[in-house]
Amino acid sequence: MKLEQVIEIVNAKVICGSVKANNIERGFCSDLMSDVLTIDTDKLLIITGLANVQAIRTAEMADVNCILLVRNKKATADMIKVAEENNMIIMETSFSMFHVAGKLYEAGLKPVY
C-alpha cells in the first residue's frame, strides 16, 4: 500500500519525512515497544499512541521507517529530530488505534501475524 493511501484513509498529517514512493505491506499496532522489537518484517507501519522519543528509537532499531501516531498524540521536538536523522516518516491522526487499524485492514494492509 502506498503511504499516500494511508494518509488519505486515516486523514493523517505528515510531520516529517518524504512520503513519495514509500510503500508499506504490513501494519502493527502497539504502545509496547518491546513487542515492536520482536518483529522481523520489512515494509512495516507502526501504529502507536506512544508519543515519546523511545517510539522513534524503537523504530530505528527495528529498521522501521514509518510511524503513525494515533489518538491525536503529537510528535515532540525530540522525536522529530531523531526521525529526521534517520530519514523516518512521522504521521499523526486524530482517530483511535482501533479505527485506524480497521480502516487500513479493510483497505488491504496486512497484519504481521
Partner: peptide, 16 residues
C-alpha cells in the same frame, strides 16, 4: 511503563 517498556520482555528479547 509510560515510556513503552517494563512489560517483562527485555531479557527474553535480548536472549533471542
Amino acid at each position: 511503563r509510560q515510556m513503552g517498556f517494563g512489560a517483562g520482555m527485555g531479557l527474553p528479547n535480548i536472549k533471542r
